[in-house]
Design a protein around this nucleic acid. Structure first.
Length: 558
RNA sequence: UGGCUCAUGGUGUAACUGGUAACACGUCUGGUUUUGGUCCAGAAGAGUCUAGGUUCGAGCCCUAGUGAGCCAACCA
């Protein structure tokens, strides 16, 4: 097969690395990956990239993927976050092999720390944080050695045990690896392995007074779990030297030495990925919560109506590489529409209603029309629509007069009522303020949709949606816009993310009129309000409230 | 007067062991259409940060610049 017609999509650099390892003799059955979130917040679209990457490798190599909570900082972590993380991963459609916790390895980690001490590779430093930080120096010049660096093994053992027993206050002392205070890599300048934290842990409760740092816990957890490839974002690249050093200095108990490799994190235009800043706008009440439909969290996107498949496609299209990137939000919208177009139930909803009366339609007549639920897929069936003399149409679907680029209803021109008849605007009733009160039209009785009559086959320029004034459901609709004003809000906020907030990011239409079928709207369905966009029933309300997921692609050129 | 990483159309990602740039989004045309949606057809848009070098030939290799990012938490 020639290169040009190869169906194989290009593998990213990480997949190439794995394939190289395989061709160098690494046993395919020993491949194992992991997704290691810290349970200190909700997962966002950036995490989705990492999830898709790791679980994606799990699929392409038929390898297990662990879900491991990096729970080494009890002050910031809690069970709520753990539960939300698990829910989000499941919703995306992935299944983890083992559910692991770094905290499960605290005993092991402690033993290995003793091992380091005994081998003169770690020591207890009795200086405060500020002093240690000063001694570490700056990247361009070497640091200075701690005066406690040469304590005897016995003394270190003694002090470390005392740390464990709660014999010291937080900040009084730490356990440090003894590596190289002149390394150009700051992380090699005797990094802290353990610190004292007086805080109950959500799993180990009050068992521990000391907690391992990220560097001490992460690589070792990978090692314990037999992770073959530990994939993380670029900012951890400088940690790799330490990652490898620590694994090289603990007892050799495992066959597989995990390999850390780094890729660029996802950035999305007009949004922030910083968990801290996301937590800030939640705390400040800028949004209603982590799952506010405007949030870039998985739960926010879910509530907004973005289907999991769209997120998966998006992560696939975004690619994996090592350079800084800002993905155009339009790509996410495209992925969302792409799947929603196939699966959504079409319905008619008038967001901003104005009355339309059909002059020549019999006064007390009412008829039932049939409409397809999804022209992309016949299996979605059809539904009944009620039609009568008085209807509601969208206020901006009418203009008394307009140029020929305007395809909607005007006086003297014909348009089709979707699934109904062809009508012609005749006159308008205007109130004292000059607002259109009511529109009058005539209809062609022979033009009924689907009747097959010559009249019904007539070409008209526009089709508008409508709802029967005598038979509709009043609903509320949330229309969302971007939460942030700037394309790169995190870079323009001068430390205060609230300065970047778009105050018009939500508009609610409480007087929307929906066809009656929406009385039976369900949470599991995705809807398209024809000509208006894709909508999802809000999962947090008992009333009928719809959230607009995304508009339809719009090509209007006036 | 540090170390490391990166640099390809507007955005993102490709280009096998070097053979003069591809795909997707976006943009623009036209067609179809009972959603200004979908679908179909097509177009514009980079000569690969700069300067040298190696080579018959370089986006790919080398050197030097330039620009961007990361690192000096007892966060992850």
């Amino acid at each position: 097969m020639s290169r040009s017609d190869s169906p194989i999509s290009n593998e990213n650099f990480l997949e190439q690395i794995i394939n190289e390892d395989l061709s160098n003799g690494f046993d395919k059955n020993k491949l194992r990956f992991r997704f290691p979130p810290e349970p200190n917040g909700y997962l966002h679209i950036g995490h989705a990239k990492s999830i898709c990457l790791n679980f994606g490798f799990g699929k392409t190599f038929s390898s297990p993927v662990n879900l491991r909570f990096d729970d080494t900082n009890p002050e910031k972590e809690n069970i709520t976050f753990i539960n939300s993380i698990k829910e989000d991963i499941k919703w995306l459609g992935f299944t983890w092999d083992s559910e692991c916790y770094a905290s499960d390895y605290f005993d092991k980690l402690f033993d290995w720390a003793i091992h380091l001490i005994k081998n003169n590779n770690a020591y207890v430093d009795s200086q405060d944080q500020e002093t240690i930080s000063e001694q570490r120096g700056i990247p361009t010049s070497p640091g200075v050695l701690s005066p406690y660096r040469e304590r005897s093994v016995e003394e270190n053992l003694d002090l470390f045990n005392k740390m464990k027993e709660g014999g010291f206050l937080p900040g009084e002392c730490v356990l440090r690896a003894k590596i190289n205070m002149s390394s150009p890599n700051m992380h090699m300048r005797d990094p802290v392995l353990y610190r004292i934290i007086n805080h109950d842990h959500h799993r180990t409760k009050d068992k521990w007074k000391i907690y391992p740092t990220y560097d001490w816990a992460h690589g070792q957890s990978d090692y314990i779990e037999n992770i073959s490839h530990s994939l993380c974002t670029l900012e951890f690249l400088v940690h790799r030297e330490l990652y490898d050093w620590l694994i090289a200095h603990i007892p050799k108990e495992k066959e597989i030495l995990p390999k850390q490799r780094e890729f660029a994190r996802l950035n999305l235009s007009y949004t922030i990925m910083s968990k801290r800043k996301l937590a800030d706008i939640v705390k400040l009440g800028v949004v209603s919560g982590w799952d506010d439909p405007r949030m870039p969290t998985i739960s926010g996107l879910r509530r907004r109506g973005v289907p999991p498949g769209a997120i998966l496609n998006f992560c696939d299209k975004v690619g994996v590489a090592k350079r800084e990137n800002i993905i155009d939000y339009a790509l996410l919208d495209f992925c969302t529409r792409e799947v929603l177009n196939k699966i959504s139930h079409r319905v008619m909803v008038v967001l901003d209603p104005v009355e339309l009366e059909i002059i020549n339609y019999p006064e007390n007549k009412s008829e039932t029309l049939t409409a397809e639920n999804n022209q992309e897929d016949e299996s979605y069936g059809s539904r009944k629509l009620s039609f009568s003399k008085n209807l509601y149409i969208e206020r901006d679907d009418f203009k008394e007069e307009a140029n020929r680029k305007y395809f909607r209803l005007t006086l003297d021109k014909e348009v089709r009522l979707k699934n109904g008849y062809i009508i012609k605007g005749e006159k308008v009733e205007i109130d004292k303020e000059g607002n259109i009160k009511k529109i009058f039209c005539t209809y062609d009785p022979k033009s009924k949709s689907g009747s097959g009559s010559p009249e019904s086959l007539r070409k008209v320029k526009g089709t508008i949606h409508w709802v029967d004034k005598n038979n509709y459901e009043n609903i509320s609709v949330n229309i969302y816009d971007k939460l942030f004003l700037s394309e790169t809000p995190g870079e323009n906020d001068d430390g205060d993310i609230t300065t970047q907030i778009n105050n018009e990011s939500i508009k609610t239409f409480d007087g929307a009129c929906a066809e009656i079928s929406l009385r039976d709207a369900t949470f599991d369905k995705y809807y398209q309000f024809q000509r208006k966009g894709y909508f999802k029933l809000d999962s947090k309300s008992s009333k009928i409230i719809f959230n607009r997921t995304v508009t339809l692609r719009d090509n209007i050129k006036y």
